[in-house]
Design a protein around this nucleic acid. Structure first.
Length: 584
RNA sequence: GGGCCCGUAACUCAGUCUGGCAGAGUGGUUGGCUCUUAACCAAUUUGUCGCGGGUUCAAAUCCCGUCGGGCCCGCCA
């Protein structure tokens, strides 16, 4: 809330405050008079800008950083004025396209919005890394696809021979065309690495890398283990083997005078798999033949090609010797383009574990959208960047609650600036009204009121219903019901029987009397509620215990929704039978 | 070996950049309500801010060290 802090900020200065101000001014001055001695910095200052803060949401800070950057990081040069800021995000097709892949895109998109909101021109680009080699056979893909390991994923046939033109397209099409647009609220252009290589978009950069091979090697070796420099004959570009079509196996070992690269196609081991080389000895022309740049180099070329100003990357890159900075230096010193401002973030964990097919905890965007809106994932990802977030299906309601609370604060104007921004930027379109009825409550009601009419009626009783939010509530009902079925362990539903329920004599008597009342038929909710009070009073049973008897018998729980509504919504004879069962 | 990030209430997290009373929500407890939609209202509870030093009038915040968790330093991406 706003209230807590301004007092001290604007209050009269105490002596200690005055002293601290003087001291901090001196410290600031000290910083100022002790700069780097004008040396050429060979390492970028990689300290990530702290996310969040009292005044600025991380994306706005990032936008400031992007806009205010004036100099290259590795060379003494000013950055040319930028007319349009490009934020890049990409997805490797050799892996599984789970919700973790959206993290990069959502965060990049937020940076674009922050730039747009500042009045700059900005856009998002999304790149399918479909020249990457296949590394392992995912679940469901025929085992004999092992023979394709090491081939570019876009050169492999579609495992199911449907309408897709290749393996990559089979996996990427749905994600790219159906999923991504649902999570992204700004304009986005999409690219395919295979297309770009085919069009020759990277040729100028490949050429520059080869022409400056010594610099490229010098840079790479500086970041590598000192005892393991690049072997002689190494090249930053690998051909597709002209014999077997694999891209991970050809080892370039020489350079001809006319710029061709002789290679040998040999086995390549990684993790537990081996890509078999065919032994072919060939020569490839990097300006004509199929092939691609190595990771440390390709990223740089992408930045230069698309004039990227910023890109998201996992926290593993937030270290001085990571591929991000190798590419950064290559990009600046070899390609002459300033490295982008990184947006480093922590990865999402599922139940405290890494998301992986082998653990079996992969969450697909499709799974997410079944039970939660895109805004909720955006909300989760847009919180502080460098803090591991954990997701768990069982804790989804908590995330909903947090979101609802933020929405309510947003509409009542009670949010702190960063929270307000978090909410705004998590929206896809216009912000929807806040819902007063919680997800877990809806999940609970969905298990009891099967009929939409009965459900809506019960929602109306909460006072959280209005025509305006009708569709939102129905949408939440659909999602919550599915969530309760799939993941909602512990959400009460009608008890299978009431055999093990222990009730006092008075409670049983009460239920029996209530059953008689119900059997007489035709009673309204209000009448039922009134009868519960009347009956319990006449028996001398505490009202609390009377209600408890009802809930225990019907739900097997001590509490539940308003008793009369619950009873009215259920099959009358079923209720009567159950109430009487306990009297026997 | 070198380096980066995280550690705040039982739980989910703000607060750390830029030092100024240790915070919110959830949960728990108590009370209230013709006492039941896990409702609502009110009150209340819980802290070794991982640990130890240092700087400071003042440290969750800055510095040094340390422990725990995660991660990087490949012909992979």
């Amino acid at each position: 809330m706003y209230s807590s802090k301004p007092a001290r900020r604007f209050g009269s200065f105490s002596l200690p405050t005055a002293i601290s101000l003087i001291i901090s001014a001196l410290v600031g001055f000290k910083k100022y008079i002790n700069p780097w001695q004008g040396q050429l910095r060979l390492m970028a200052d990689i300290r990530p800008v702290k996310d969040s803060g009292k005044e600025l949401f991380w994306a706005d800070q990032k936008a400031d950083e992007i806009v205010s950057r004036k100099r290259y990081s590795y060379i003494e040069k000013d950055i040319e004025p930028i007319s349009e800021y490009v934020v890049k995000t990409s997805a490797s097709i050799s892996g599984v396209l789970h919700i973790g892949r959206l993290s990069d895109t959502i965060r990049g998109e937020s940076a674009v919005r922050a730039l747009l909101d500042k009045g700059h021109s900005a856009r998002l680009i999304w790149v399918a890394e479909d020249m990457d080699p296949l590394r392992k056979i995912p679940e469901g893909v025929p085992e004999d696809f092992e023979k394709y390991i090491g081939m570019p994923v876009s050169k492999i046939p579609d495992p199911w021979e449907c309408r897709h033109k290749n393996y990559a397209e089979h996996f990427v099409e749905f994600y790219r065309d159906e999923i991504l647009p649902q999570f992204v609220g700004v304009g986005m252009t999409q690219h395919s690495m295979m297309d770009e290589y085919q069009k020759g978009s990277f040729q100028p950069y490949i050429k520059k890398m080869l022409e400056n091979l010594e610099v490229v090697i010098e840079i790479q070796n500086r970041y590598r283990d000192k005892n393991n420099p690049l072997r002689s004959g190494w090249a930053p570009w690998t051909p597709v083997c002209k014999n077997c079509g694999k891209i991970i196996t050809p080892r370039v070992h020489d350079f001809t005078e006319d710029g061709r690269l002789p290679y040998t196609c040999s086995d390549y081991k990684f993790e537990s798999t081996t890509a078999r080389g065919c032994g072919h000895e060939g020569e490839a022309d990097p300006m004509r033949d199929e092939g691609k740049l190595m990771w440390k180099g390709e990223w740089a070329a992408q930045w230069a090609l698309w004039k990227v100003s910023s890109e998201g990357a996992g926290k593993e890159y937030a270290v001085p010797n990571s591929a991000f900075f190798v590419n950064g230096e290559l990009c600046e010193r070899v390609l002459g383009y300033p490295m982008p401002v990184p947006i480093f973030y922590e990865h999402l964990m599922i139940d405290g574990k890494k998301m992986s097919a082998s653990v079996g905890n992969v969450v697909y965007p499709r799974d997410w959208l079944e039970v939660a809106p895109a805004e909720l994932l955006r909300f989760l990802y847009n919180k502080k960047l460098m803090k591991t977030r954990n997701f768990s299906w069982s804790e989804l309601p908590k995330l909903y609650d947090e979101y609802d609370r933020t929405a309510a604060g947003y509409w009542s104007g009670r949010l702190e600036p960063t929270q307000k921004r978090l909410f705004e930027i998590s929206q896809i379109g216009d912000a929807a009204p806040a819902l007063g009825i919680s997800f877990s409550m809806v999940a609970f009601l969905s298990k009891i009121f099967f009929d939409e009419g009965a459900f809506i009626k019960s929602v109306k009783r909460t006072g959280h219903y209005s025509e305006e939010v009708h569709q939102l509530i129905i949408d939440r009902l659909i999602k919550a019901r599915l969530w309760a079925e799939k993941y909602g362990e512990g959400i009460p539903s009608l008890a299978e029987d009431s055999k093990d329920i222990r009730l006092s004599g008075d409670q049983s008597l009460f239920l029996c009397g209530l059953a008689d009342f119900l059997e007489a038929g035709g009673h309204s909710e209000e009448e039922i509620q009134g009868e519960i009070y009347r009956l319990s009073k006449s028996i001398g049973l505490q009202t609390r215990d009377a209600f408890m008897a009802v809930y225990l018998t019907i739900l097997g729980e001590e509490r539940g929704p308003r008793a009369s509504t619950l009873i009215a919504a259920l099959d009358r004879s079923w209720v009567v039978e159950r109430f009487k069962y306990n009297y026997k």
